[in-house]
Design a protein around this nucleic acid. Sequence first.
DNA 1: TAGATTGTTAATCGATTAACAATC
DNA 2: TAGATTGTTAATCGATTAACAATC
Lengths: 213, 213
Amino acid sequence: MRWNKISDAVVRRLPLYLRVLDQAVRDGDKRLMSSQELGERAGVSPALVRKDLAWFGEFGKQGVGYEVAYLRDELLRILNLDKVVNLAIVGMGALGHALARYSMDRYQRDSYYQLRVAALFDADPEKIGEQVGNLVIQSVDRLEEVLERERIRMVVVAVPASAAQEIVDRCVRAGARAILNFAPVHVTAPEHVYLAHTDLSLELERLAYYLED
Amino acid sequence: MRWNKISDAVVRRLPLYLRVLDQAVRDGDKRLMSSQELGERAGVSPALVRKDLAWFGEFGKQGVGYEVAYLRDELLRILNLDKVVNLAIVGMGALGHALARYSMDRYQRDSYYQLRVAALFDADPEKIGEQVGNLVIQSVDRLEEVLERERIRMVVVAVPASAAQEIVDRCVRAGARAILNFAPVHVTAPEHVYLAHTDLSLELERLAYYLED
DNA sequence: TAGATTGTTAATCGATTAACAATC
DNA sequence: TAGATTGTTAATCGATTAACAATC
């Protein structure tokens, strides 16, 4: 089952719903939730919640709402998070470290969090061999080899701008299907690879716009 | 001069243009740039480049293009980055550290980068007193006092989800005008404060959607 | 002048909201 | 049954692209 043509804007909200539902399941305070309440907690209008979910199926009951545990499981399935997803982080600067720690901690703590950090890479000989959680930072020279051997198809790129495009190219050749680029540079990938960009420095800079004089 | 009503989507692209122009100024390879080339380097269509810039004035010359140094300076002014902007980071976990290091390094290195990290806060007694660059992590108890004294109006929130709303509220009361929240939770602020949210775990989770089965 | 490229208006595209029949 | 809430269609809103007259 593939739901192509689903817009980015929709996909972007699914993990938000997932989080609200998972929280509700944990708290165990309610078995059912309306689009009204789900929207409120996620910061999205109720109509949009219903429309987003309707792209993937009919998960609710009229007059009743959505069963939280069921909808959470469906969202996990839709997001491919119902089974372990291996993930590599390339570039173990401060940001790479932060992302690695966060994901590792969460993978251990939350049974539902199935994003597993499977490999860490850096180009700096000083960093290679360093232990982070239960992993050792490897030389980026072994990038292709390890991605292929471990069947890693999701990669976080946190290298300097000057190296980003080359790393992306190499990940693509090694079979990556989804790449999240944190380097402050516009990079490209072939159509069949999903490439997203999160640029923290751009976020900081745009924020300054809203400081009135 | 205030250009209210400029959409978020437009403001979000300005730092992108700024980066391309600044790079061109540094390289010194061209004095002029067309919307075509600026767009190509930024990953934006030429028409959109022209439209975005036109919200703020007439910066180009027909048949010629934009003067890179001039347009860069105008963008710096529009983004309020033509003078030092003080910034506080609350929550010095791995992500807070990464952001602090990044901004501090860049402030030292790039003469045009005027986002100055002016204060660091954490609630953990273990971390308070720790040196990061030329700053010492302070107790979050002193948040209001320091923000007011140092006239800090831009704040990065990198605390755990459970503390985020309280920290945002306190920043608002202490005069913050622009807040960037990294905590994985939906928080709110009054109308007069600009609040943005960057959620790295949501980014990672949505990425998994694009891994085909 | 001739060619190029802006600034701007109109057309298109896409995403969100409103509304409501279906139905639990 | 009566009340509530979904799933879905139509209306609205906003952002991007296309086109071109103005003009350097």
